[in-house]
Structure formats: structure tokens, C-alpha cells
Simulated scan of single mutants.
Amino acid sequence: MSRVLVTGAASGLGAALATAFEARGDEVLRTDVVEGADLRLDITSDDDWAAALAHVEAAWGGLDVLVNNAGVAGGGRLDVATMDEWQWIMEINLLGAVRGTRTFVPMLKRQRSGRIVNTSSLAGLVHPAGMASYNASKAAVVALTETTGHELAAYGVSAHVVCPSYFRTNLMSSLRGADTALAGVVSRLVETSPISADDIAAAVLEGLDRGDEVILPDQPARDAYGLKWSDRATYDAVMRAQAAKLDEVGA
């Protein structure tokens, strides 16, 4: 039985991950900023992270799995997205995971065990047009995770990053940005995806059981990332064609 803390666990992928861990018999602390969580945790607040650490120490005396899952959707073409949008998405998607990692690393080092699981996105590996801020925030989460794994390996702590493609979730409810053309395109991709949050959560646990450091939990994600590595010219052509379509929609 593992002791698991999941951020953004009141809904969407966070809720699905929490339920999947619980189904295996794990103890799960669901945290979020909205009702439905066991503990309120604003991942941009150092005070909230300190309170989460104190709660874990008092209740469990340690932690086996930290899941930095909470995040927001955003993006926009380079000349449309504002600097406020960039700062907002980086504060949550990147620095939220940084704060969580920094909070619990001393505990994990002391106990010389544990896993850190960061939810990124296929956008952290494959970078479509119109989504520079989101892509950059999620690519940074990939880099953070790899670095964490290198630093903590000697302490018996592993790091894993989850990079799903579009799946049905309520993430779009957090979408912000001046680029309404992008919002419409992305929302349609999410709403029409045949993949559910439960599907992604099940694949994530399978990846953790295998010890995968980069978890691509769905076939579209694996196909897109595979194309980037196997045929860069075709990948670039696909991405640039999508960029042209976005410009047509947003003109």
C-alpha cells in the first residue's frame, strides 16, 4: 500500500488518478482549490504547500508518491497571447510542480524512497502552432522531471512525466486567452476525443508499474511523438499546415 498525494484531484485526470490509486488499495490525499478535495491546496501558494507537508507528516509520517497533476489550459498565437497569459500559465503549470517537488524532496531524501509523478502533456514533446505558452510550460515540466530523476536517483527516488494527447476532461474550463480561434479548435479536439480520463489514469499506473520515466499513455500521443523522431520533415509539414489552418480560422 502506497501513500499518495494528488494535486488537482477534485475532477478530471486528477480525480481519475486518485480513484485508480485507491482501487489498488493505496491511501490517497486528494488536494485541490475547489470543493470535493480532502485538503485545500493552491499549488501557487508556498503556505498551502507547507500545510500539505505538515498534514502528510502528521497523518502518514511519510509519502510514497507525489503526483503534481494540477494545471490549466492556455495558449495563443505569438502576436495574440499577452504577457499576463504567459505569466499565469507558467506560474501554475511549471512553478506549481516546482513548488510541490521542492516541498517534498527533503522528506523523500530522508526516507530514501518515493516517486514523483508530473503531469505534462504531449505538448511538452510535440509543439503545435498557436500554443507557445502552453507548449513551453509543459516542455519545462518534462525538463524538470528528467532533472529531478537524475538528482534523486542516488536516494532511491524516481521521477516520471505523463504526456497524454487530447482526452475528454474538464481542463478546458480553465482555458484563458485572447486567441479565441485557438480556444475553439482545442475545445473541439478535447470534446470529440474517444479517450477518457479513466483511460489515461489506467495507462499511467501501468507505466509506473513498468518504471517508465516518460509515460505516453495513449496511441495518438505515441504516434505523434514517433513521427517527430522518425520523419522530421513530415512532422514539420503537418505542424505548419495546422498553423496555416489556424491563421485561416483566426483571420
Rank of each mutant, 00 (worst) to 15 (best):
M1W: 01
A244F: 02
D236T: 07
D209L: 09
S121A: 12
S11G: 04
G62C: 08
S45V: 02
R210V: 12
G177D: 05
D212F: 02
A54P: 11
D247K: 13
D198V: 11
R77F: 06
T180Y: 00
V98F: 03
V249S: 09
Q219W: 03
A201G: 04
D42T: 04
T169F: 07
R112V: 10
G74S: 14
R99H: 11
A203F: 00
E213R: 12
T119S: 13
A139G: 15
D231E: 09
R3H: 04
T192S: 13
L122M: 10
F167Q: 05
V185G: 05
A51H: 11
M107W: 00
A178I: 04
G76F: 05
D84E: 14
E151K: 11
L208M: 10
Q111E: 10
S121R: 10
M107L: 15
M131V: 06
L205A: 06
V186E: 09
G250D: 03
D79P: 02
L108R: 02
K109W: 00
A59F: 00
V80R: 02
A50S: 15
E57Y: 00
M131S: 10
V204M: 06
W88C: 12
L53T: 08
R232V: 11
I92V: 15
E248T: 14
P128T: 08
P164F: 03
A123T: 12
A50F: 01
W60L: 10
E22K: 11
W60C: 11
E27L: 15
Y155G: 11
